[in-house]
């Protein structure tokens, strides 16, 4: 039943010690869909995103990516946590882009992009180099291949980070506020790359404050608050005709 969905989350709970951050989150994302997540600070957006590739262990509920249970194995109705190696294998097909870029500062842009395919997938160097060069060209950084992250602007770094994630040929891309750490004039260049990806049919979950992007590119919009999904639907509907007070209050602040 979950086979036709790229991502399916059911009743996901997550606590940090006594603090319950996710209180039963459900989500369904079809292949090729761009799903945008908005919500106030501390509502659990990043935490939920990190649960999808098992950077955080969940306390209850289930998450499937491409029909496969993430981080756990189900046997006789019981869940068993996977070994580190198996989780790592699952993460290979899920790309992630962070708010603070998190490029490897001791590697050039090209080395950053080549690292995972070389070390994790053990592909041939020539092939990886070709693909990495093409990806950097695609995000408009053909001339910056040999630069270290410290020599790039924030927008350029984030585009390298996107190329780095794409180099693993993921079937799903997770973005955690990819433009929040950028100067306003650099936001556009990163959003353009993401739009291009969306047009190409990539399945994406994007946590963002860019309402314009959500409206233009998003297929669905999810509003989270207090660790639950308060409202979701087509972006125009949620933005134009919010049904919940909490959504209305939040939107009145950001729009």
């Amino acid at each position: 039943m979950s086979d036709e969905l790229m991502v399916r989350a059911e009743n996901v709970h997550k606590s940090f010690g006594p603090l319950e951050v996710l209180k039963g989150v459900d989500l369904a994302v079809r292949p090729g869909e761009v799903s945008c997540v908005i919500g106030p600070s501390g509502s659990g957006k990043s935490t939920f995103l990190r649960c999808i590739n098992h950077l955080e262990k969940i306390n209850a509920g289930r998450i499937w990516v491409d029909g496969e249970l993430v981080g756990y194995r189900e046997r006789g109705g019981k869940l068993y946590e996977m070994r580190e190696k198996e989780v790592a294998a699952q993460r290979r097909s899920i790309g992630m882009v962070f708010q603070r870029f998190n490029l490897f500062p001791h590697m050039t842009a090209l080395e950053n992009v080549m690292e995972a395919p070389l070390r994790v997938r053990r592909e041939s160097r020539a092939e990886v180099r070709e693909r990495a060069t093409a990806l950097l060209d695609r995000v408009g950084l053909a001339s910056k291949i040999g630069n270290y992250p410290g020599q790039l602007s924030g927008g350029q770094q984030q585009r390298v980070a996107i190329a780095r994630a794409l180099a693993m040929r993921p079937k799903l891309m997770l973005f955690d506020e990819p433009t929040s750490a950028l100067d306003p004039e650099l936001v556009g260049e990163v959003l353009d790359v993401m739009k291009d990806l969306a047009r190409d049919g990539m399945t994406m979950i994007v946590v963002t404050h860019e309402i314009g992007f959500a409206r233009e590119v998003g297929d669905s919009l999810i509003f989270m608050d207090g660790g639950v999904v308060v409202e979701s639907g087509a972006p125009d509907e949620v933005l134009g005709n919010p049904r919940h007070d909490r959504t209305r209050t939040f939107l009145s602040k950001v729009l």
């Binding site: 590739n53 190696k85 290979r92 998190n102 995972a116």
Partner: peptide, 22 residues
């Protein structure tokens, strides 16, 4: 900075690889 190791983990690198390479 912790974000580096996290990025490596998210790319599917093992703990050993993350330590050695990043």
């Amino acid at each position: 900075e912790g974000g580096q190791a996290e990025a490596a983990t998210a790319l599917g690198m093992s703990r050993g690889q993350t330590l050695r390479r990043v």
